[in-house]
Simulated scan of single mutants.
Amino acid sequence: MRINRILLSSALVVIALVVQVTVLARLHLPGAVPDLMLLVVIGLTLVYGHTSGALIGFGAGLLADLAPPADHATGRYALVLCVIGYLVGLVRPESGRLRSATVPMLVVVAAAIGSTLLYAGVGSLVGDTAARHVGLTGLVLTATLYDLLLAPFTVPLIMALARRTENDPLAGEGPATLGGGGEGAFPRLGGQRGGLFGRPVRRQGRVKGVRRL
């Protein structure tokens, strides 16, 4: 991952965790808690792609596992967000730009359902039956509802911030570079040999009368 991706992702994940623990978790809403960490992972992954999404998801989940008042096995949420980040990245278009706002909302719904079921499934493997006592159906429905209500205020903003880092002209690799391969958010300018605006590579020396850039 490029340094600008790491810095932005780290800042957003830390902010999301603080808001999650200090605000959302204290609302005492019925059922699940709105998952701001999940929405941050979704927003970043829809721009950066599945590889970065898996790494961001793992890091965000591990941080949530270690932050108090976590009462579950360390690595459990890291596994969940890593898998969700990878799967969300697979639906990202090649250009990295979504033509409709419907797609992110559908992704949020699928991710909310998938993360809740996966979290409960991993919990059952390690002997945590809390979801069974609370009611898995109620958790899935409330988690999906809360995340869907919160998504329009968070996911577009996160994606806009992520695209700004991808458009950094000082970046040395990835999608913002000219002719770069990778999982970037912007198409390449020019051909593989043409460089900027398709400018041909001159192999036979300087062309007289043409100033070299």
Rank of each mutant, 00 (worst) to 15 (best):
I6H: 08
I113W: 03
G85P: 08
V109I: 13
L29V: 03
L66P: 05
V207D: 13
V107S: 03
G89I: 11
T144S: 11
P30D: 02
G89C: 10
A32E: 02
V47T: 13
T116K: 02
L106T: 08
Q20F: 07
T102R: 11
L170Q: 12
G43P: 05
L145M: 08
L55F: 11
G205C: 13
I15A: 15
S52W: 14
L27T: 02
G198I: 10
A110G: 08
V47W: 04
V14C: 14
R212T: 09
T45W: 02
E166A: 03
A160Q: 11
H133K: 13
Q204Y: 12
R202K: 13
T165K: 08
L213T: 11
R206T: 06
G57Y: 07
A111H: 02
N167K: 15
G195Q: 09
R188V: 11
E166C: 05
K208Q: 10
P93E: 03
G138E: 04
L39E: 03
K208R: 14
A131P: 05
L145C: 05
H50D: 10
V107D: 04
I84Y: 00
G190E: 02
V122A: 13
A151I: 03
Y77E: 09
H133F: 08
L44E: 04
L157Q: 08
G85L: 09
V19Y: 13
G31N: 11
L46K: 01
P69I: 09
G121S: 04
V41F: 01
T144M: 14
G85S: 06
L87Y: 07
V126E: 15
S115T: 09
T154H: 05
A64I: 01
S115F: 02
T74M: 15
R188E: 10
L24Y: 02
A111Y: 01
A25I: 01
G96I: 08
I3R: 14
L161E: 02
D147W: 00
E173N: 13
L106R: 06
H28C: 01
G179T: 05
V41S: 00
V201M: 15
H50L: 15
Y146L: 14
Y119M: 11
L213V: 14
R92T: 06
L81M: 12
M37S: 08
V21F: 06
L136S: 04
A32I: 03
G181P: 12
G182K: 10
R76I: 07
L141H: 03
N4R: 15
V108H: 02
G89V: 12
V107F: 05
G194Y: 06
L150Q: 00
L150E: 00
T102A: 15
G182V: 08
V207S: 13
G180E: 11
A64S: 14
P156N: 05
S124T: 07
D71N: 15
G138Y: 02
R188N: 13
T142R: 04
L170V: 09
G174D: 13
G184E: 06
G31P: 07
G127Y: 06
L62R: 05
S95A: 12
